[in-house]
Design a binder for these strands. Structure first.
Length: 276
DNA sequence: CGTAATGTTGCTGA
DNA sequence: GTCAGCAACATTAC
């Protein structure tokens, strides 16, 4: 479930808890979670200090003192937690970083889809496939309206899969895409080259505002998301369409419907969001 | 039991 | 080259 606001919430929690901590020992009960060489992963990180935790799109970037960067993607249900050293791992604990201050940083993943990759700091944009062609962050500073307008015009896809494609812009997943399209009054199957100038501007502004608002609410918890403190998000109370199929549209009162677009469940208002 | 679920990658064929 | 569709990854919940 983690989209950009959830990953950013995790990043902030990790920063508060483990920035500056040194790794003493690493256990990997689920080796498939490590995409890069497992031995190298362990030997390089033991003794290293977590200097900083960055984020790009839905990727977490742990910056270590020895010029190594641990790239971590939570995919569907990856979670970090910090426990006293030696606490029993959870059923789905995949990686345990024992810290020099007698705590364990655990990575848990019920779906086992999340992946980690260790790279030389600075090479992550070449080394990590998802980062090599990632689009701009959905922020006022980075998501330029001219850029967005130009790639929309060049594409012949439906707007929903276009927005989910991290190469176009980073950070949106199924939930916020449905929300932003409802706010912008755009049908999810609208072809991107059919959007007019004012629709593009509206879409951009809504994307930026929605991601910021969801981050301010510490993300959305619909199935399992919680931050490193085990706390759920607050934004699920603010959702207008996602998870509200059969309920009335908050704008016009019409019953919201759910369809499949590019194999993804998609909820929208058939009155407010009309196909061209 | 069948189906769907939040993400990403890679393949196939049009 | 572009795009849609599908499978795969592995598990849980309804």
């Amino acid at each position: 479930m983690p989209e950009l606001p959830e990953v950013e919430t995790v990043r902030r929690g990790l920063t508060a808890l483990v920035q500056g901590a040194q790794v003493n020992k690493i256990q990997v009960p689920y080796p498939k979670a490590i995409v890069s060489d497992l031995q190298e992963f362990k030997t390089a990180l033991v003794g290293a200090v977590i200097e900083k935790i960055d984020r790009r799109g839905k990727y977490l970037l742990f910056r270590f003192s020895n010029q190594k960067t641990l790239v971590s993607h939570l995919r569907m249900e990856g979670q970090y937690s910090v426990e006293p050293e030696g606490d029993t791992p959870h059923k789905h604990t995949e990686v345990i970083f024992t810290l020099a201050d007698q705590r364990d940083l655990m990575y848990n993943d019920t779906r086992r889809f999340g992946r980690m990759q260790l790279v030389e700091t600075g090479t992550e944009y070449q080394q990590v496939s998802g980062l090599s062609k990632i689009g701009p962050e959905p922020t006022e500073a980075d998501l330029d309206v001219t850029y967005l307008s130009s790639i929309l015009a060049k594409s012949h896809r439906k707007i929903k899969p276009f927005l989910l494609d991290q190469a176009n812009l980073a950070g949106l997943g199924n939930i916020y895409t449905d929300e932003v399209l409802w706010q912008s009054q755009i049908h999810p199957e609208t072809l991107t080259d059919q959007l007019n100038e004012s629709e593009v501007e509206r879409l951009r502004d809504n994307i930026i505002a929605e991601i910021k608002r969801a981050t301010d609410h510490h993300g959305t918890t619909v199935h399992s998301f919680s931050n490193v403190f085990g706390e759920v998000g607050q934004f699920q109370n603010e959702l207008d369409v996602y998870g509200r199929v059969g309920e009335p549209c908050r704008r016009c009162g019409e019953t919201l419907v759910k369809i499949k677009v590019a194999q993804r469940g998609t909820t929208y208002c058939p009155v407010c969001q009309v196909k061209k």
